[in-house]
């Protein structure tokens, strides 16, 4: 399985990443190799194996619906690069 340059730019765009032309070429090759490696699994006969829906064998881990203490507004905003009026401030988004 090979990965095209278009595949790489598409995925990069979804991840909000920017690459130079050379990087795209290199990534197409490298990511393609990773996919090829995983592709080896397709050679196995899995017809008798139950599909894995989740990697953990644990199930039903729940919490009781009980209120516990929250962070204060100051604590919540402590790491925010920018804040205003008790809120996180982010670059303007279109509405």
């Amino acid at each position: 399985m090979s990965l095209t340059r278009e595949d790489v730019t598409y995925v990069a765009n979804l991840a909000r990443l920017e690459f130079s032309e050379d990087e795209v070429t290199a990534l197409a090759e490298q990511l393609g190799a990773v996919l090829n490696y995983a592709e080896a699994l397709s050679g196995l006969d899995t017809s008798k194996i139950k599909a894995t829906e989740h990697v953990l064998a644990v199930q039903n881990v729940f919490r009781e619906d009980e209120i516990k203490s929250c962070l204060t507004n100051e604590e919540a905003l402590a790491n925010a690069p920018e804040s205003e009026a008790g809120c996180f401030k982010v670059p303007r988004v279109m509405e």
């Binding site: 619906d65 209120i67 516990k68 929250c70 962070l71 507004n73 009026a85 008790g86």
Partner: peptide
């Protein structure tokens, strides 16, 4: 209409002061 959020124990109450019902999980 649960008392707390889906993945953490912060209250779900409506109309509170901004960013007063948060914790590391929901942040």
């Amino acid at each position: 209409g649960t008392k707390t959020k889906i993945f953490c124990s912060c209250p779900t109450e409506f109309g509170q002061d901004e960013n007063t019902h948060t914790c590391p999980v929901c942040l």
